[in-house]
C-alpha cells in the first residue's frame, strides 16, 4: 500500500545538515496496524510526514498504491510535484490525526467532520448523514452540535478521528494521538483505532513515544537516528 524505498530527509539549519531520515525502506500492507516508536529526534514524525505527503523526501521513493508519487518531478523538466496533486491525494486517500486535535473552534463537531467532505464536493445531505454516522461510531452521536471548547480532550480527539475518516481514506496516520489525554482516554482512543482496523480494514500508522500505546498495534517499528532499528510483529490478538 505504502512503500518507502531508501528514503532520506536532510534539513539544513544554517551551515549544518541534519539528517532526519537516513535511507529508510519500509512497506506497509493494506490492513496493517503499525506503531512507530523511538526517542525524540529519531525521525519517527518525519517518517510519518513523508508517508502522509506533507513533507517531501530529499531522496528515495514514496510509492502509494503502486504509484511513485514524486516520479514526475524526477522524470520531466519539472522540479516539483504540483501541490494540487499531493493535496488531492491527502484529501481522498489519507486521514490525519494530530496530537493537538486541531479542531476549528468556530465549527461544531458535525461541521468539523464535514470539512474534508465539503472540500471533496460531497453533496450536503450525504456529508451530513455520513458525519453523523462517523461521530456516532466514535461514541459522540450526542455531541453533534457541540463546539470543541464544550468537549473534553478525549472527545475532541474522537471528533478529529471522525474527521480523519470523513472521505473514507485507505490509511490513517496518527501523530501522538494520545499525547494530550489521560491514560483512560488514551486506551479508549486506541480501542477506537483497533476497531477501525479490524472491522473496517483501515490501515493505521500511529507515531508515539509511549510503549504501552505502541504495543496495541500489530507491528512496532523502532526508529533511532533516522534509521529503522527494528520491526517487531506482535502476536496475533
Amino acid at each position: 500500500m505504502i512503500k518507502l524505498e531508501n528514503v532520506s530527509k536532510i534539513y539544513r539549519m544554517g551551515d549544518q545538515e541534519v539528517r532526519a531520515l537516513d535511507g529508510v525502506s519500509l512497506e506497509i500492507e493494506k490492513g496493517d496496524f503499525l506503531s512507530i516508536i523511538g526517542p525524540s529526534g529519531s525521525g519517527k514524525s518525519t517518517l510519518m510526514h513523508i508517508m502522509g505527503l506533507i513533507d517531501i523526501p530529499t531522496s528515495g521513493k514514496v510509492i502509494l498504491d503502486g504509484v511513485d508519487i514524486y516520479a514526475p518531478a524526477k522524470k520531466g523538466r519539472k522540479t516539483k510535484v504540483k501541490d494540487r496533486y499531493l493535496t488531492d491525494i491527502r484529501l481522498r486517500k489519507i486521514g490525519f490525526v494530530f496530537q493537538q486535535f486541531y479542531l476549528l473552534p468556530t465549527m461544531t463537531a458535525l461541521e468539523n467532520v464535514e470539512l474534508p467532505m465539503k472540500e471533496a464536493r460531497v453533496p450536503k445531505k450525504e456529508r451530513k448523514e455520513r458525519s453523523k454516522k462517523l461521530l456516532d461510531n466514535v461514541g459522540l452521536g450526542h455531541r453533534l452540535d457541540h463546539f470543541p471548547k464544550q468537549m473534553s480532550g478525549g472527545e475532541q480527539q474522537r471528533v478529529a478521528i471522525a474527521r480523519a475518516l470523513a472521505n473514507n481514506p485507505e490509511i490513517l496516520l496518527a501523530d501522538e494521538p494520545t499525547g494530550e489525554v489521560d491514560s483512560k482516554t488514551s486506551e479508549r482512543i486506541m480501542e477506537t483505532f483497533r476497531k477501525l482496523n479490524r472491522e473496517d480494514g483501515i490501515t493505521l500508522v500511529v507515531v508515539t513515544h509511549d510503549p504501552s500505546v505502541a504495543e496495541k498495534a500489530d507491528k512496532i517499528l523502532r526508529m533511532r537516528d533516522g534509521r529503522i532499528e527494528s520491526l517487531t510483529h506482535m502476536k496475533a490478538r
Binding site: T87, Y102, L115, E119, A120, A164
Partner: peptide, 13 residues
C-alpha cells in the same frame, strides 16, 4: 496551526 491542519487533511490552497 489551523491552516496547517487544513492543508494537511487536504484542503486546497
Amino acid at each position: 496551526n489551523e491552516i496547517g491542519m487544513m492543508r494537511a487533511i487536504g484542503i486546497s490552497r
